[in-house]
Computed example of a mutant assay.
Amino acid sequence: MKTRSILIVFLLMIGCVAFAQKKKPAPKKQATTKTTATKTTAKNMVIAPKSATVATKIETTTTTTKEAATTKPTTRSAFYKTPYATRNSGSFDKSTHLISLTYGFPNTLDYNGYFYSANESGIGPVTVRYEFPIREEAGVGLSVSGATKKWDYYGGYTTKITGISISPLGFYHFNKLIPITKLDVYAAVGASIDLSNYSYDDPYYNNSDTSDLEINPAGLVGARYYFTEAFSAMAEVGEGSYSIFRIGVSFRL
């Protein structure tokens, strides 16, 4: 009896130990470890592309900077290597319409005579010009100039001349030869149609007025520099429009 009781108790103890082992949280620990490992792996997978992206960006920026540094010195040579028909600095093209306003000096409006002890004075010439393009490097224009000149001479007599000059001109722009966007260098040839009106306060001319019409060749060389896309200052030298030198401004429409 006693031995049977001891055997039963022993079997019960073995059963309890076996039941307790079944309820141990060992599998949960393994799952947690796996999850942690998965999370760590996931984090690493996210971080890796970011690092790669940053590296790529730095590499791209460095490459772009190197390319820019390489391109700048070769811009002018690249301009001249481009075929003449397709190159253009941008200072003039088929869309460039110009209105210019200039003041000329010296005033070459003159009288075919001699005034002894005469005081000379004058205004102008003031010139307004419109030019429109016909090619990438060429245009045609029309200038209208006005000037006056007056002589006060011995005896209190005066002679006054008022002149109007109309000049059709053909322009060539050096935009295919000079690689500077803001600088427009040009030359022009044409004719100057000059109408002069003389008024006299002189008894020898019976206080009468006379007029004179002449057609003279005209030619000039000039340059304008653009301070903005539409506004530029200009200077010219050449015969025509009652002056030799002219300075003024231009507006690109």
Rank of each mutant, 00 (worst) to 15 (best):
I99R: 02
I123Y: 12
E59V: 09
N119M: 14
T65H: 13
D93S: 12
E131D: 13
K23W: 02
Y130H: 04
G113S: 13
K66M: 11
Y111E: 06
G90Y: 04
V46C: 07
T127K: 07
T62N: 15
K66R: 15
K39W: 02
L101N: 01
A69I: 08
I99Q: 03
S121G: 08
A55R: 13
F92L: 09
A69M: 09
H97Y: 08
A78K: 10
A26P: 00
V126K: 02
T36F: 02
N88Y: 01
N112W: 03
A42G: 08
A18M: 11
T60N: 14
L101K: 02
K57A: 09
S77P: 01
A78E: 12
G104Y: 00
P125S: 08
I123E: 13
N88F: 00
I123W: 11
N119L: 13
A55E: 11
V46F: 12
T70K: 15
S89R: 03
T61F: 01
P49S: 09
G122Y: 01
K94Q: 15
A37E: 11
T62M: 11
E67W: 10
F79S: 05
H97S: 13
A26M: 10
T82H: 06
K66W: 06
T32P: 00
L109E: 01
P27W: 11
T61L: 09
T33L: 14
N119R: 15
C16N: 07
P125C: 09
V128S: 03
I58D: 07
F79M: 05
T35M: 02
K23N: 13
D93R: 02
Y130T: 01
T56A: 14
A37C: 03
T70M: 12
Y103T: 01
L98D: 06
Q21A: 13
I123R: 13
T36N: 09
K66N: 11
T102V: 10
S95V: 06
A31H: 03
S95L: 14
F19W: 06
T96K: 03
S91P: 01
P73N: 12
T63D: 15
V128W: 07
T86I: 08
A69S: 10
T62Y: 14
R87S: 05
P73M: 07
F115M: 04
A55S: 13
G90E: 06
F115S: 00
T63E: 07
A118D: 05
K29E: 11
Y130Q: 01
T61H: 06
T62P: 00
C16P: 00
K23Q: 12
V17F: 12
E131Y: 00
G113R: 02
F79Q: 05
F19H: 07
P25E: 07
A42T: 12
Y114W: 14
K24E: 14
T38K: 04
T63W: 02
P83Y: 08
F79T: 06
F105W: 09
D110P: 02
T63C: 08
T35Q: 06
A85D: 15
M45S: 10
V126H: 03
E131K: 08
L101D: 01
I14C: 04
Y103R: 04
P106N: 09
F92P: 05
T102L: 15
G104I: 00
G113Y: 01
A20G: 05
P49F: 04
T127H: 07
K94Y: 06
